[in-house]
């Protein structure tokens, strides 16, 4: 059970990064469907940099930077050219899929040393279930720390309030003198950095290698997580863990004697996403979408 718990936390990390980033972008009123593309480019850039420098930290940094660059492309279209946000996000995902495959073509199957645990092994052995607390690499702790920071930012910080204002009523925010487009730009770029980190986690720690399309829909699941978390940080984190548990079923179900074709367990996360979206739909307790989400805003003056 301890192994399952640890595997679940590890599998939740990329989802958590990506969902938190998208949550911030959506709270500012921008729907970026390009998470999958940003994660893929983040994953491949992180892998290449980590392999050539031998540094996981530099790799993670490169992943985040690549995510920011991709998000910048999206922002140029969706904010600069007032393009339809859904279409621009799809373009980003298609472009990211192609670009990551192109960049990583000569790296497929090359192994990378796995990211090391942050804390010394003696800590994990000192207390019961220590491995489930101290057994992870630095990025796992970074993901959870950023969840706490983002919660604080959105709920308590003055700048977080401004960000929410841009997402709930852009026109009023603009009338009050908020730089709506600049706020949205920063939120989108932050979302890109987080998606890039999510991708980097996949190629540096989760399965330390590069494989084409290795995100396998995690960017889309992260988008779904934001919806059924009701745009709230705590629920998004809980959702990431829950979904990670479902993704781990394919590795543990056979061992537990649950008989079904392996494809069924592989499909479970996607089916669970649909089920969760359907079950939580329409619940008033589930929180609500930012009022201006996905709407194009052009300052009139």
């Amino acid at each position: 059970m301890e192994a399952f718990f640890a595997a679940m936390i590890v599998a939740a990390t990329p989802l958590l990064f990506a969902a938190l980033g998208e949550l911030v972008a959506e709270r500012s009123g921008v729907l970026n469907l390009g998470v999958e593309g940003m994660m893929l480019v983040g994953a491949v850039c992180a892998f290449i940099v980590a392999l050539s420098t031998g540094s996981t930290a530099l790799g993670a940094f490169a992943g985040a930077a690549a995510g920011v660059a991709m998000a910048g492309l999206f922002a140029l279209l969706a904010l600069g050219f007032s393009a339809n946000q859904a279409a621009a996000g799809l373009a980003l995902t298609i472009f990211g899929g192609g670009l990551s495959g192109l960049l990583g073509a000569s790296y497929v199957g090359v192994p990378l040393p796995k990211a090391q645990p942050l804390f010394p092994a003696s800590w994990a052995e000192a207390i019961p279930y220590g491995k489930a607390i101290f057994g992870y690499d630095a990025m796992v702790y970074l993901a959870w720390a950023s969840a706490a920071a983002i919660w604080w930012f959105l709920a308590r910080a003055r700048s977080g309030l401004k960000l929410r204002a841009a997402g709930d009523n852009a026109e009023s925010g603009h009338a009050l003198g908020l730089p709506v487009l600049r706020i949205r730009l920063l939120a989108v770029l932050f979302g890109g950095a987080m998606a890039g980190l999510g991708g980097a986690y996949l190629s540096l720690a989760y399965t330390p290698m590069w494989g084409e399309g290795m995100t396998a829909g995690r960017g889309w699941i992260a988008l779904a997580l934001v919806v059924f978390a009701g745009w709230r940080v705590g629920w998004a984190a809980a959702g990431a863990v829950l979904f990670a548990a479902v993704t781990q079923l394919q590795f543990y179900a056979q061992g537990w004697g649950w008989r079904a074709p392996s494809q069924f367990w592989a499909a479970a996360p996607y089916l669970a996403t649909i089920l969760a979206l359907a079950l939580l739909a329409g619940r008033r307790t589930a929180g609500s979408a930012p009022a201006a989400l996905g709407r194009i805003f052009r300052p009139s003056s």
Partner: peptide
Amino acid sequence: LPKNVAGVFQGMLLFFLLACDA
């Protein structure tokens, strides 16, 4: 050339289409 060049092309085409629609 790797086959992914096609995906890059398609993504770029959609980017430019959306930008030109502005």
